[in-house]
Amino acid sequence: MQTLTYRFPATSQPRRPVHIGVVASGDLEILLESLPQADHADVRVRTSVDGFDVIWHDVLARFFARAALSGRWELNDLGATPGVVALRLRQAVEAATEPMEAG
Rank of each mutant, 00 (worst) to 15 (best):
E33R: 04
G71E: 01
A61E: 10
Q91N: 14
V85F: 08
V23C: 13
A41W: 00
A38H: 08
A92Q: 05
R66F: 05
D42M: 06
L31F: 07
I30K: 01
A80D: 12
V54H: 10
F52C: 12
V54T: 12
A24G: 07
R46T: 10
T47I: 09
I30R: 01
E94K: 14
V54C: 11
V22P: 05
V22S: 13
R62E: 11
L78G: 04
A41M: 03
Q91I: 09
A80N: 10
T47H: 03
V22A: 15
F63V: 07
Q91V: 11
L78I: 13
V93D: 03
L89W: 04
E29A: 10
E29M: 13
G79E: 01
I20G: 02
R66W: 10
S70Y: 03
G71T: 02
E94L: 14
A68L: 04
L32H: 00
V43N: 03
A65P: 04
A41L: 01
A68V: 06
L78A: 13
L78R: 15
R46W: 08
Q37T: 12
R90Q: 11
I55E: 10
I30S: 01
Q13R: 05
Q13Y: 02
N76S: 15
R90N: 09
G21V: 08
A38M: 03
T47K: 04
F52Y: 12
A67D: 09
E94A: 15
G51K: 09
A61W: 03
W56F: 03
I30L: 10
R66Q: 14
D58A: 05
V43L: 01
D42K: 12
Q91S: 13
P82L: 08
F64C: 00
W56R: 00
P82H: 12
D27S: 14
R72H: 10
L87T: 15
A67E: 11
L32W: 00
P14C: 02
S25I: 13
G51W: 02
D42R: 08
Q91H: 14
V18S: 04
R90G: 05
R72W: 04
A24W: 09
V49Y: 08
N76P: 05
D53M: 11
A24M: 10
A10K: 02
R7W: 06
R72E: 06
L60N: 00
L87F: 15
V54Q: 14
E29W: 02
R46Y: 05
P17C: 08
D77R: 05
R72S: 08
V22N: 07
S12C: 13
I30W: 02
A86R: 07
A92D: 08
A10S: 07
I30T: 07
V45W: 00
P9M: 09
R16W: 07
L89E: 03
T11S: 15
T81Q: 10
D53E: 15
A65V: 08
R44D: 10
V59I: 05
W73E: 01
F8Y: 06
A68P: 06
R15C: 06
S48T: 14
T5P: 05
T11K: 11
A67K: 08
G71M: 02
A92Y: 04
D58E: 09
T81H: 11
H40Y: 13
D42Q: 11
Q13W: 02
V54I: 14
P17R: 10
L75H: 00
